[in-house]
Amino acid sequence: MRSPGFWFAAPVIAFLTLAFALPIGIVAWTSLMPPRTFDLSLPPTIANYTAAITEGYGRPLMWSVIGATFTTLVTMLLAWPTAVILHRHAGRWAIVVAILIALPVFISESVRLFGLSVFLMPRGGILAGSLQAVFGLQIGSIQNSWPGALLGMVYIHFPFMLFPLILGISLIPKDRIEAARDLGANRWQVLCEVELPLAAPGLAIGALLTFVLCLGANAEAAILGGRAVTVITAAIEQRFGYAQDWPAGSALTVMVIAITAAIVLPVLARLDFDRLTKR
């Protein structure tokens, strides 16, 4: 008899086989077709992969990786104290604050970014307009710049870090922290030796989600960034869109998936959660 783990995995495996195997197969196969063709029965070629390497896609990829890394780190720094406060100190208010934080996420991303851009707009924007009307102050704006896009990424992805982190912090038994304190550990030692390892599953999964979603993010650079830089998803969309070049777009997609996997999977595999949480 197979282990229960297999049986629990079976429905998910069955679903992904039915619904995901075909799309990924189509993309992989299309990536081997000659550039700018729509016929899937042509002889395979690696032309799209060589073009992906030689045609300056490194820059967009670099911006995406920088943006994802930056956002993951910043959201982590913002979310950790918030999660600690909500879990340990907020008491009955925790659920209220959690709902308050979750509510904005129900507005679709493009609309929230639109709101942020209306707020940041120079002159007639809500911030600039109010400052001008109330204090007679004139200010600049970070709209249409890469920092503007980064602000949008942090804003959009904060909940993806926060909620896993709250779940992770809820795994830390209170008596462990007190025991460590009794043994003379200072705050820093408690954080590094007790809290971080015990909350690692939440931290790792929050970081994984944030990083991966930011790598694929496009709307922030488009709406708030004024295309100051081109991120990799925007470059891929250009291939599928105005270039009408599905094979090249597919090859870039395959490469992005491979690069994401190369960054994320080793980290995921190295984190032995059971060892971390049970010692």
Binding site: G5, V27, T233, F240, G249
Partner: peptide, 29 residues
């Protein structure tokens, strides 16, 4: 349950394959 509760043969692959869909840029997916 399969991802974290039980240890089973094939779990490593399950964990890897499971996260693949979110690596996909959404418009292409």
């Amino acid at each position: 349950m399969a991802f974290a509760r039980y240890d089973w043969r094939g779990q490593g692959w399950f964990r890897r394959i499971l996260v693949l869909p979110i690596f996909f840029p959404q418009p292409v997916l």
